[in-house]
Design a protein around this nucleic acid. Structure first.
Lengths: 243, 243
DNA sequence: TCACATTTGTCCGTATGTATC
DNA sequence: AGATACATACGGACAAATGTG
């Protein structure tokens, strides 16, 4: 039986799941809910907000895609407060790039310029733990190459770690999206151990230059490195009949 | 015992609404679906994908929040393909600010560095039509100021036009998201005609320097301009009582 | 190892509000 | 103004996943 719970129709034209989502988001902003905290189950949330489970689910979709919660299935599962908004921004950047049909040349130019900027801030702001992470990355990549294994994942991670060491989240987000695209292109090439090892050597040299605060050398090595990657990618693109 | 495997994510754990969302997104990337196109209604989508309406609704929530579709209620309503991903990026940027993951200083630094890079490419790549658009923008802004009107929209548009004139979509998208955020912050300050006019004068000077290919002067003016805006925004943030 | 309870994932039926024709 | 088409929302039901006893 249809029941109207209130005498006056609400001024609020916003949808119910949006209100629920905003409500929970505000609790996070206010610090009432912190990363790691467990939210009630969908059925409990439904009864507490006095809405149906479908409404709760759609609200959770928004929070999940925005990076405010992660959801685990099963017995002790449920929604858990997270703090991955920045990662979701990178995901959306990637979508925007794909939507605009970015060309390989645009991507390389942008990547080159942004990494140059990042490098300057790395020289200024990098902490010992940053160097440690970069060193570990290079070491793992080296050992993989020595065992005739590809180090593609580590090689992309190297640039992410560089961005992190710049201590600027905007750079991190931007480069994360760019490197995702680069990785996407690279996965279409058959990457071989030889070029992968070449990349690792460049990374090792760049790291060394940074540690010695030799900004000019680091920039020069980065330029050579990125241009080599561009040439490889260009050979792929030129064999692609797309306009 | 529970085996936590963080290296590989299970293939079959992808949820149905995610598959539907990805499916539609791919159609957009491939150009099969273009902005303005109308998607079938929820019930039709449900039968075409052979899933329930709830699954379709959650998929639409993802696409909506990502900026790929807008949804209209009522008779001739339904989901319509859109292209507002960039706006959603700046929305998430705002969330990241509220989570205190990104500071105003980081944003200003990133904006400054990226615009400096952009300016170099503008000097190299700008076409006469770019100069025309920039000139028109400044003229409109000037006339507004002369009539004691705010030129906020034009002043933000100026930077978008600059990015466009660099002929690199990656720069365009990145700066677009950042400027949307800057505009959002500026709207919270009481913008007055005086500062707005000051901004217009800077833009006019920058444009003149670019047209005369005076890269150094343009960069110098841009730096002064952005630092002034930063100071205004900083006064907003420091007066914000949030913890 | 084997149930068992909990929770998410999904489907269906139904009702309501709303915008268009 | 009425009919139609659509999103929005509720409730019930069952399957699948997952941790616990």
């Amino acid at each position: 039986m249809p029941e109207k719970n209130y005498l006056f129709s609400p001024i609020n034209s916003r949808r119910a799941f949006e209100q629920v989502s905003m409500n929970i988001k505000d609790l996070i902003f206010q610090g009432v809910l912190k990363p790691g905290d467990k939210l009630p189950s969908e059925t409990h949330l439904a009864s507490q907000f006095n809405v149906g489970r479908q409404t709760i689910r759609e609200a959770l979709r928004l929070l999940e895609l925005s990076g405010f919660i992660v959801i685990h299935k099963g017995g002790a599962g449920g929604p858990i407060i997270a703090d991955t908004v920045i990662n979701k921004i990178s995901d959306l950047f990637l979508d925007a790039f794909r939507m605009r049909n970015i060309t390989m040349d645009e991507l390389t130019v942008a990547r080159f310029e942004i990494e140059k900027v990042i490098l300057n801030y790395v020289v200024k702001n990098a902490t010992p733990s940053d160097f440690e992470a970069l060193r570990e990355n290079v070491d793992i990549a080296k050992s993989k190459i020595d065992n005739d294994l590809l180090a593609t994942e580590e090689n992309i991670q190297f640039h992410r770690l560089l961005a992190k060491a710049s201590k600027n989240h905007v750079f991190v987000i931007t480069l994360e999206a760019i490197m995702a695209l680069v990785g996407d292109f690279l996965s279409h090439i058959g990457p071989n151990v030889e070029t992968s090892g070449n990349v690792v050597r460049y990374h090792a040299a760049i790291l060394e230059a940074i540690e010695e605060k030799d900004r000019e050398l680091a920039l020069q090595l980065l330029e050579q490195h990125i241009l080599e990657v561009r040439d490889r990618l260009n050979r792929l693109v030129t064999s692609d009949p797309n306009p």
